[in-house]
């Protein structure tokens, strides 16, 4: 009966629970604060230039990038955009078939130990830092390309594309594998019961069912390639140039920021235009990630 008096009183544990809830909520909301903070701070540094000085037509339309020219600086990112696009495009050309193929092999064909080891290997490959990839492009791929194709320069779209492809592939593989794993086994069993062979099951049943997840994996790979910095900085040859072939050197948007930010004075036009590129990169990757997420979420809900 004595307990009855205290019945329905909020006690210390109740308040502790509420306090913890508030505390972990701060952790949760911090991610939102950080992403907004990132956008606000890069905008703050780049917006003045974007509004006052920058001619958007020149920015996106001109291939001339000479921001440090004292008399007549030029701020065209067309060539940089072409550099990023060509390297990312080539990388995807390499990474998409191979990573989807590997994912299908791991998820649908490999068994037991083989599967375990492949997964571990893929995970370890995904962990190699981008600066190491850049170094590989610089020191191993570069002479290899020069020798194999008999070209004067090996730091080219081809080099960076291959490097970026190898870099993006493990991540795409594991996301694609997740997508394949998400297809319920009863689909496979149903198809097998009808007498379909393994590959028929995969092509006619599993792939169509997983196509959204696979598309999401590809998109995330594109986002990753688009935003990669160190590897493309070191492997592209860093020449402002709209490439005519895969043997041309180029320069990427991300690499431009990495290479030039250190030389600029805080607040200068050059400094600000690099932040403007940052805003552009942020928005594009945000869109890519959002789309990928919506697509992947779409399959989970249906």
């Amino acid at each position: 009966m004595s307990r009855n008096h205290a019945f329905d009183q909020r006690n210390l544990d109740w308040y502790i629970d509420k306090a913890v809830q508030a505390l972990v909520f701060i952790g949760g909301i911090s991610a939102v604060i950080f992403i907004i903070g990132i956008f606000l701070f890069i905008t703050k540094e780049g917006i003045g230039f974007l509004i006052n000085t920058l001619d958007l037509q020149e920015f996106f339309g001109s291939p001339y990038w000479e921001p440090s020219d004292e008399d007549a600086p030029e701020y065209g990112i067309l060539a940089l955009l072409a550099g990023t696009a060509s390297v990312t495009g080539l990388a995807m050309l390499i990474a998409i078939p191979f990573s989807l193929g590997t994912a299908i092999y791991i998820a649908e064909f490999a068994t037991g130990k083989t599967r375990e080891w492949l997964k571990i290997l893929v995970e370890l490959l995904a962990a190699i830092p981008s600066v190491v990839w850049g170094f590989i492009g610089l020191t191993i791929m570069n002479p290899l390309i020069i020798e194999l194709f008999d070209v004067p320069v090996g730091l080219t779209v081809l080099n960076a594309g291959i490097i970026l492809g190898l870099m993006a592939a493990p991540i795409m593989t594991s996301i694609a594998e997740d997508a394949l794993k998400a297809v319920p086994d009863r689909y496979r069993e149903a198809a097998e019961a009808l007498g379909a062979t393994r590959w028929q099951v995969v092509f006619k049943t599993v792939l169509p069912a997983a196509k959204n997840g696979l598309l999401g994996a590809v998109l995330l790979g594109v986002g990753r390639g688009f935003g990669e910095t160190m590897a493309v900085l070191m492997a592209t040859g860093h020449a402002v140039n709209i490439p005519g072939s895969v043997f041309d050197s180029v320069r990427a948007l991300t690499a431009t920021i990495a290479a030039e930010l250190g030389e600029t004075a805080v607040g200068s036009d050059h400094y600000q235009v690099l932040f403007t590129i940052g805003i552009f990169l942020f928005l594009i990757t945000f869109l890519i990630n959002l789309t990928a997420d919506l697509i992947v979420r779409g399959i989970r809900n249906s």
Binding site: F34, G37, S130, F226, I257, G278, L281, F286, L290
Partner: peptide, 13 residues
């Protein structure tokens, strides 16, 4: 998006 924003944008931030 925190995971997906390019590392160089994090650097700018």
């Amino acid at each position: 998006n925190l995971a997906g924003v390019p590392s160089i944008v994090h650097a700018l931030f």
